[in-house]
């Protein structure tokens, strides 16, 4: 009970209900995020319909290794995040597991950003930044890279927010400012983290896979 009273916030009287409201609230926000990234992907899809060959040619220029490894990294971070969330629900004895999984999640997030940094460096060297120096001749290829930079940038911002949230949570739990058992912040952060992962799951075939077969 003392755990719950430490976690209870205004205006709630009942911890269970507060927790459910937090979970519901983040799901509503995730629905909003679905439309946010969905609109970007719609932009991509319409441009791709109008310039299929240019998009295939541009997709071939991306580095599939960086892309695939990064996807695997994010999928793994979702695993550790899910374990952290489920462990916090399961038992107060699993505090150490929760902590280590949170740390691992943040590390994997940072690894993703680091790999992305190497990839950006390579893209810049290959003149894949839209503008006067752009490397590809096909009309429409610039659109692909316009989308590429924008959407990976927006995704990286989302991921950085996620890393900040997870790290903060780790720190707060480590210092025992809040209990780990049933802490709604873990659950809510995990849901957000998974969404960022899902966005990347869809970006992977859109960015890295076009034009590989030809």
């Amino acid at each position: 009970m003392s755990d719950e009273s430490a976690l209870l916030r205004e205006p709630w009287f009942d911890f269970g209900r507060q927790r459910e409201a937090g979970k519901f609230g983040i799901w509503v926000f995730l629905a909003s995020e679905t439309l946010f990234f969905g609109a970007l992907m719609l932009t991509y899809t319409v441009c791709r319909i109008e310039h299929p060959e240019a998009f295939a040619a541009a997709g071939r220029e991306t580095n599939i290794w960086y892309g695939t490894i990064n996807t695997a990294v994010l999928l793994t971070s979702s695993l550790t995040m899910a374990v952290a969330a489920q462990a916090s629900e399961q038992s107060a004895r699993l505090r150490r597991l929760v902590l280590s999984c949170l740390l691992l999640t943040a590390m994997l997030g940072l690894a993703f950003i680091a790999i992305k940094g190497f990839e950006y460096k390579e893209d810049i060297d290959k003149h894949l930044v839209p503008g006067a120096e752009f490397a590809l001749p096909q009309r429409g290829a610039e659109l692909f890279y316009g989308f590429y930079w924008l959407v990976t940038g927006v995704h990286a911002i989302h991921l950085s927010i996620g890393i900040a949230l997870v790290s903060r949570l780790f720190w707060v739990l480590l210092r025992r400012e809040l209990p780990a058992k049933d802490n709604p912040e873990i659950e809510v952060t995990a849901l957000y983290w998974h969404l960022v992962d899902i966005v990347w799951i869809f970006l992977y075939p859109l960015i890295y896979l076009p034009g590989r077969a030809s």
Partner: peptide
Amino acid sequence: SGIVVAAAKSTLVVLLFM
């Protein structure tokens, strides 16, 4: 195939991880 697999992966994440 790329889109379908992505949909399958995200279904797994949404239903089981989330």
